[in-house]
Design a protein around this nucleic acid. Structure first.
Lengths: 343, 343
DNA sequence: CTGTTAGCGCTTTCAA
DNA sequence: TTGAAAGCGCTAACAG
């Protein structure tokens, strides 16, 4: 024995004794599996109420072999994109009686496998968002961690439902939009070199450049935050480009501010686009042209897949969400382009 | 018996048998309580490794009577303020080996007590953010749910550590700032009528008005979101006030946009202030004067209190954070005030 | 030093 | 219809 203070909640045994039935009966009553004398059920309920009895979740979990909780592992809980995913996942899960445990890997790809292992043990499954996890790690993690659903980490070799965003198509559409506006010299402000979504953007852009031919596409280190964006303003102007594709809205917003301080007008002097369509994108000055990403829907769909897995059903097909261009005022035809102007 | 497929992880008993020791020994090895022959420990570890054994968290929790998890209950996970709290709480907790389980009450104050009860059962404690929970509920919840730490819900009658923001002082400081600028006719855009933080702002404003005397302070329904803010623009202009205190930054940002569309210039025609100092406040046009609120620090401090409680130690004193005025460009002296202008 | 044993609180066969 | 008993996997007295 090793109890703390005995002020804790009543146990099923105590209720059973007080109601003069067996623990099995109490258990049945509480799980709606009771079929006998309604009087008995009533008495059990009453006694349980008096004793303020509520089943011990841990004990149930051990007996049942399931915790009714899933873990969500993300690289950075403070990132609005992950917050949207968490929020929608949690809401959806709770409708099915599940809770979500969060784990922030703090962008540390190396101990991510350990972290995932650890949280998986406390839950019935994990929703993993690990854009920087090496493929080998992901493979081994996936092997022993199912049920597992992957977010933003498509991997053909893994047999786990996967939901993702096609960043490549999003940035391509944005580039296409700028091109149609008449821009022929565009700079792309890169995100973290190691990140998959940066890779996808780069690939999408390369494909685009290859396809249209007559466009000069440069890349410059950008970053991920507003501060990073502010810092790139001078560098961007130095390129002489007529338009810039920022890695995300945060960077774009910072850039807008930086450009403003330098006296550059957007979109007259230079066009700027973001990515993500965060809630503030439409309130910047000028309102930001960007590509919207359905993170909330991503969270909801992730839960649908997860629920199917948990029930032993076949999960719906994998999904790749295509970002959608949101045309606003931060992009316009170049004043005098180096390429031809469309009109 | 009622096992699923027996493909699950190895148990302590299996490791014990394979290593030819008792389960107790394996347990000791894994908990660093083993003091005997190093050879034995080594063998146990090796065998455990071969069997890919990792302790079952649920079983441990049941045996120990603790889960090493705490719940965070908030009214809306999608709100950036709660995200900041969650993110910092989770990071702090994880450094001490704890995980956090999230529960979103979806602004439904009525089933909050049930929700809190439910999650408390799965965890060792709960960090509760329930600004709208009736006092009576809070009292009964507090009685049976400790360890408990309260965020933004100061309650003198409850013996639980409490961390909060002094919204009254924040809004008073903002009003004072406007007053010193020369504003004598100010409108306050209210938040949710039932919310404590709205109440505090109202009280702070009343005290301020009473203290300075010569200021006309009106209140108007505002809301909590950017959309709400956009919608109030006309109503605000109709008051003829020279300055407006928005309930929060979101509302202020929406208002800025609404005013811009009406052709009103900020701060020349009207001054606008927000509340919270969300990351974007400094990037609006013009940059928003607001009162900053340390949500991240709140989460960190909440964990410190929680940890003390969990260890049976005396938690640090309760804390009330005073918002700090962040002077930016959305506030300026009125063009021609109805009161005297300071200069 | 190490193993035996009881127990954490609940669920679920199996038998009556 | 109900109860006895075993078991979920682990920990911790207690012996030896």
């Amino acid at each position: 024995m090793h109890m703390g203070r005995r002020s804790s909640a009543a146990t099923i045994t105590e209720v059973a004794r007080a109601a003069e039935v067996s623990a099995a009966t109490v258990s049945r009553v509480f799980n709606n599996r009771f079929v006998g004398d309604p009087t008995v059920a009533e008495r059990v309920r009453r006694v349980a109420g008096e004793l303020a009895y509520t089943p011990n979740h841990t004990a149930r979990s051990l007996a049942l072999g399931k915790t009714r909780a899933v873990a969500l592992v993300v690289p950075d809980l403070a990132n609005p994109a992950f917050q949207a995913i968490l929020s929608s996942l949690s809401k959806a899960a709770s409708r099915d009686g599940y809770r979500v445990l969060v784990a922030d890997s703090e962008e540390s790809a190396v101990d991510e496998p350990l972290l995932v292992d650890e949280v998986r043990r406390r839950c019935d499954a994990v929703v993993l968002c690990a854009p920087r996890m090496p493929d080998a790690d992901l493979l081994s993690v996936a092997a022993r961690l199912e049920p597992l659903v992957l977010i933003n980490r498509p991997s053909p070799r893994i047999d786990a439902p996967s939901l993702s965003i096609d960043y490549g198509s999003g940035i391509r559409d944005l580039a296409q939009h700028l091109y149609e506006l008449g821009h022929r010299h565009i700079v792309f402000l890169e995100g973290p070199p190691g990140s998959l979504s940066n890779r996808q953007r780069l690939d999408g852009l390369a494909a685009f450049a290859h396809q249209v031919g007559d466009v000069r596409l440069e890349r410059r280190p950008g970053g991920v935050s507003t501060e990073d964006g502010v810092a790139t303003a001078e560098r961007v102007m130095a390129t002489g480009a007529t338009a810039v594709l920022a890695f995300n809205d945060l960077v774009a917003i910072g850039l807008l501010d930086g450009l403003h301080r330098l006296g550059a007008r957007v979109p007259q002097d230079i066009s700027v686009s973001g990515f993500d369509d965060i809630p503030f994108a439409k309130y910047t000055t000028p309102p930001l042209t960007t590509a919207s990403v359905p993170n909330t829907e991503l969270g909801t769909q992730a839960w649908h897949r997860m629920r199917a897995l948990l029930r032993g059903e076949e999960p719906d097909h994998n999904l790749v969400f295509e970002p959608r261009v949101e045309l606003r005022d931060s992009t316009a035809p170049p004043a005098r382009g180096r390429g031809r102007i469309t009109d």
